[in-house]
Amino acid sequence: MSKIWIMIAKRLGLGVLTLFAISIIIFLATELLPGDLARSILGQSATEETVAAFQRELGLDQPAHVRYAQWLWGAVQGDFGTSLANRRPIADLIGTRLANTMFLAIYAAAIAVPLSLILGIMAALFRNTWFDRGANAVALSAISFPEFFVAYILIFVLAQSGLFPSMARIDSTTTFADALYKTFLPALTLTLVVTAHMMRMTRAAIINLLASPYIEMAQLKGMPPARIILVHALPNALAPIITVIALNLAYLITGVVVVEAVFVYPGLGQLMVDSVSKRDIPVVQAVALIFAAAYVLLNLLADVLATLSNPRLIHPK
């Protein structure tokens, strides 16, 4: 048992190190700006005094490493400074939006993960039949479609007839059931985008194993195909499947940016896109850090779970 904890601690340490490096990159990226941050925001017509005052307000008169330390210390405590565009604390802007984005991502994952597992297992079970071919062709096309194409097709088909709302406007007064109904189309869009990939990987991972001698043995014993796949092949295919599920959940985190824009959903992605066009750098940095942290954490989780599912990885020779 202790070996597992050591392994998890090692991975966690590596994750924290990665996050630290990412925070440096996100922070230092602004230092790459040609010229002066204050001047480029205030414009050419600003006087020397306004620029100097603005620089002092942003703390730009201090050296970069001091500002980085302050920024990181604040970020760890949940304080990301103030927005340049509307002078509000960034933590206030992010608060409910982060919850909204998490809700959408979890909603999509709750549909996508079981669906893709079932479809993948069925495609492996009925391999090389019309079902398999059809599912594969649809999956390959779905991977190739831009998210907004999928989103607008869904709006065209489902929202036009009034079945579902095309705008996912929710606020604090929206009840849970109502939120589920209103965000169904964005969640379905995300589901379609990630399901294809997860399904193909599940199928490939299982089929890879079907050539193994122990599967042949099971076949020779006269086991039904469904039992062979579910009881014999699936446990050994878990590691790649878990990895690809986590990768796709991480993808959901960035996929929400476009989908939120289509459905006017008040989430982090919307905030980021708005802030990019306003060049509100502190907000973009904060949101980028949150997205990157979620990405790293999910990858870490995948790594740990994939190791746990395979005893050979826990006890290396």
Binding site: I22, A250, T254, V257, F291, A292, Y295, N299
Partner: peptide, 8 residues
């Protein structure tokens, strides 16, 4: 660099 999501 790859640890940061590409779009973000």
């Amino acid at each position: 660099l790859m640890a940061i999501p590409a779009l973000v």
